[in-house]
Design a protein around this nucleic acid. Structure first.
Lengths: 189, 189
DNA sequence: ACAGTGATGAGACTTGGTCCCATCACCGTA
DNA sequence: TACGGTGATGGGACCAAGTCTCATCACTGT
């Protein structure tokens, strides 16, 4: 027997997403989220630094991306290393079971400026993590940032497609396709 | 004689930047900013939607960029159109008189996560505005986003250089140089 | 002289977020 | 069985951001 109901963070995330869908992010208070999860405001802020963060799983993604780039073959070009990292991330995080949750989360974020702002910050963090990991492979400064910027776009395109419940494409497959598109478009810029 | 002291928004911006430098963004209240400008909290929120926005001049930049892209010669490639827009923006906004203020503002933003978050959102807005303007020129979807993403990086690199008081480079010149760097790095990705 | 107008001031109110302390259930040890 | 330690939780005071409403004040035009 556990002392308390387990999985408090997960319960808070589910309660928050439900409420945000029902009445919108701005019309939902932290106290209401906590109550639906059978907890209190104090406990909410013990698990999440602020209200927005309940929809953003910390900074695990940046580490996954950096690790995937570091593990890429030494002969890989910068964008190939990013592609390798996207495969790793797809295996670890963008699994089919999470597709429905991610799609709901994506819609809620798109509907609220405050959440879009947090998402923008997370995106910058991922881009910076990719650029830094590329520099540790010996890619010099302007080139590393270019590859990271293009990699971020590839990830966004792949994520959009992966979230679509009508397609049910594998994330790695979506990423490879997006990479081809971006490569082709880059040549014409 | 004016009814009140004129230029209330500008006075608030100056007061805010001064206080943010002196004691940091988090240790400065809106009431303190307003008092230093000879105003009150009510008036502050009448001119700015929130505390962060006092350092971000609305959304004028997005319109400038979109206009510059629309005005580019019809024969210009996507990145050339972006470069044309950066020239226009440099003429209108990144003038030498503003260099010192921009450098101070940049340092304050870099020191605070909340301000960096707002800056990230503004960056997304600029990228979206560039992609949309390119699409109005007939550039199809993936290519427009690639060019906008690379254009955003070019603008960031040029802005970093333009802000440096030791260099005093013209923004348009910095943008052209950054564009050459990004083009060279793109070929090696 | 007088009503209209637009920017400002004042203050109540809600909510996000911080902080401190009490509580409660379990665990290990005597 | 008794007892102190531990870790997650609850409760509530407190501050600042942001909203809203109403009053004020200085000037303008008739």
């Amino acid at each position: 027997m556990a002392r308390w109901q387990p999985h408090a963070p997960e319960r808070l995330v589910v309660a928050a997403l439900d409420l945000f869908e029902e009445r919108g992010y701005e019309n939902t208070t932290v106290i209401e989220i906590a109550e639906r999860a059978g907890l209190t405001k104090s406990t909410f802020f013990r698990h999440f630094p602020d209200k927005r963060e309940v929809l953003f799983g910390g900074d695990a993604m940046a580490g996954l991306l950096a690790g995937g780039i570091a593990d890429a073959p030494a002969t890989a070009t910068p964008l190939e290393a990013v592609s390798h990292a996207l495969d790793a991330v797809g295996q670890a995080a963008f699994t089919p079971e999470r597709r429905e949750f991610s799609a709901r989360r994506r819609a809620v974020i798109a509907a609220n400026p405050e959440l879009r702002e947090r998402e923008a910050l997370k995106g910058l963090g991922l881009t910076a993590a990719m650029a830094e990991a590329l520099e540790r492979r010996g890619v010099p400064d302007p080139a590393s940032r270019v590859a990271a910027q293009l990699g971020a776009l590839v990830m966004t395109l792949a994520y959009e497609r992966w979230c679509d419940p009508a397609e049910e494409t594998d994330f790695g497959e979506a990423a490879r396709q997006a990479l081809r598109q971006v490569r082709a478009a880059t040549a014409a810029s």
